[in-house]
């Protein structure tokens, strides 16, 4: 029996990296008594897989992991049990059983949506972003950039993989939500107040072509820095898969 857990990650926990986060959840599941199934052998490990890693410093309201269960449990109770064993900053949003049609989380990811906010004091503002958009995105046929991975370095065209890109002003609700997810926003001069300029991105993700938001922003701004030096923060909104009609739906 397979179940998919959706959770959000913010607060100080956004500095916990992916591998540490996996170990965190392995322990949280033990603490909460969820009857997860284990592999055989002397060092049994939990049947658990994450849809996609989340970078250090990135917050998210749409993270997913699949687990195999030994026995059926009540989904609402599972959410409560898990949440009573979470650290501040991580919250389980939902728990649902997977059906035949659901693939596993990792292989079904096709896109990821992001909200990017400005980090203050770095000379990047809404007007400048708007001009970059006009110049380098709107009406462009090709968006070429060098993509570096640990193994290779190749030039790719981002155009077919950027499904959506919009600039918008934060409304009060979204501003409040982000502020609660990143409570230290003010001391860090993160622009998360109502009316601040935000960026919405829908990018190809997963095994086919994984485009990180910072790669797109490097293209857009022409900056060369590693992403931890770039003047905007990243928040993942959701992970999505292709539906039958070619659109995207939440995992």
């Amino acid at each position: 029996m397979k179940a998919r857990i959706k959770f959000e990650k913010g607060g100080v926990l956004r500095y916990v990296g992916h591998l540490d986060m996996m170990r965190y959840f392995q322990k949280a599941i033990r603490r909460s008594g969820i009857p997860i199934s284990y592999s055989q052998g002397f060092h049994p490990h939990q049947h658990m897989s994450f849809a996609m890693p989340l970078g250090v410093g990135v917050s998210s309201e749409g993270e997913y992991m699949d687990i195999d269960l030994e026995e059926e449990i009540n989904p609402n109770k599972a959410v409560d049990d898990l949440n009573s064993h979470m650290a501040d900053g991580v919250r389980v949003i939902s728990f649902r059983y997977l059906t035949e049609e659901d693939g596993n989380a990792m292989s079904s990811v096709g896109a990821a949506s992001y909200f990017l906010y400005l980090k203050g004091g770095e000379g990047l503002d809404g007007d400048l972003l708007m001009s970059y958009k006009n110049e380098r995105f709107d009406g462009k046929d090709k968006m070429l950039i060098t993509k570096k991975t640990k193994k290779s370095e190749r030039e790719i065209d981002l155009k077919p993989f950027v499904y959506d890109f919009r600039l918008f002003e934060l409304d009060e609700d979204y501003s409040k939500k982000m502020q609660s997810l990143i409570p230290d926003y003010e001391t860090n001069d993160f622009r998360l107040n109502t009316g601040d300029m935000g960026i919405y991105l829908l990018l190809s993700a997963g095994s086919e072509e994984n485009i990180r938001p910072d790669l797109f922003m490097k293209y857009l701004t022409g900056r060369k820095e590693d992403w931890e030096y770039l003047p905007f923060g990243i928040h993942r909104i959701d992970l999505l898969k292709k539906d039958k009609d070619g659109g995207f739906v939440s995992l």
Binding site: V12, L13, Y15, D20, R31, H85, D184
Partner: peptide, 26 residues
């Protein structure tokens, strides 16, 4: 609980294993 950290985001983003410095463990 209010997410107070002694180190700024800028610093935490530039050091190795920043989770060493955030406390808040179980």
């Amino acid at each position: 609980m209010t997410g107070k950290l002694a180190l700024s985001d800028k610093v935490l983003m530039r050091v190795e294993k920043s989770a060493r410095y955030i406390g808040n463990e179980i």
